[in-house]
Amino acid sequence: MPSKASLALALGIMVLAGWGVFSTFSWPWKAALFPLVIGIPLFCMAAAEVLWVLFGSTARSEAMDFQLSTDLPARVVLRRTLLAMAWIAGFFAAIVLLGFPVAVPLLVFLYLKVPGGERWGLSLVFTVAVWAIFYGLFDRLLHLPFPDGLIVTWTGFG
């Protein structure tokens, strides 16, 4: 994971910086100065990292940062990671399609029931509590404008 992730990041940065530097050729110097000053060394450093990953040592350098858990089998980690990402993506899709007021209680309840395996009573009470906080704080108190979901807009219900 570390080498592949590092390679993906470094390649992504190389492409990004290369595109950035190339784009500046058509800009006036005022707009191009900073992207050039940043883009050129960024491209070179990313290239160095790519070469390091491909041909250098595989030693992992520890960042003084949050570390992912390593005490589970790799297959379990991969499965759970993909599942967690699917839930996040699903929540995003639910917000866009159904809108926040529907997506929030739906996600909380489904998450508690499906991966969480919680009891019906707890799941319902917890969902209602989260929805009440969401509605009370963001809708009633802060008056944040949450738009209807695309399904509501398309069908005209709401």
Binding site: S6, L9, A10, I13, L16, A17, G20, F34, P35, I38, G39, P41, L42, M45, A46, A48, E49, W52, G56, A59, S61, E62, A63, M64, D65
Partner: peptide, 21 residues
Amino acid sequence: LSAQGGRGMLRGFLAGGLGLF
């Protein structure tokens, strides 16, 4: 200082550069 060794430093600068970019 946020990562160890030369490799860590390169990654630190890459991260910083990406932020600036």
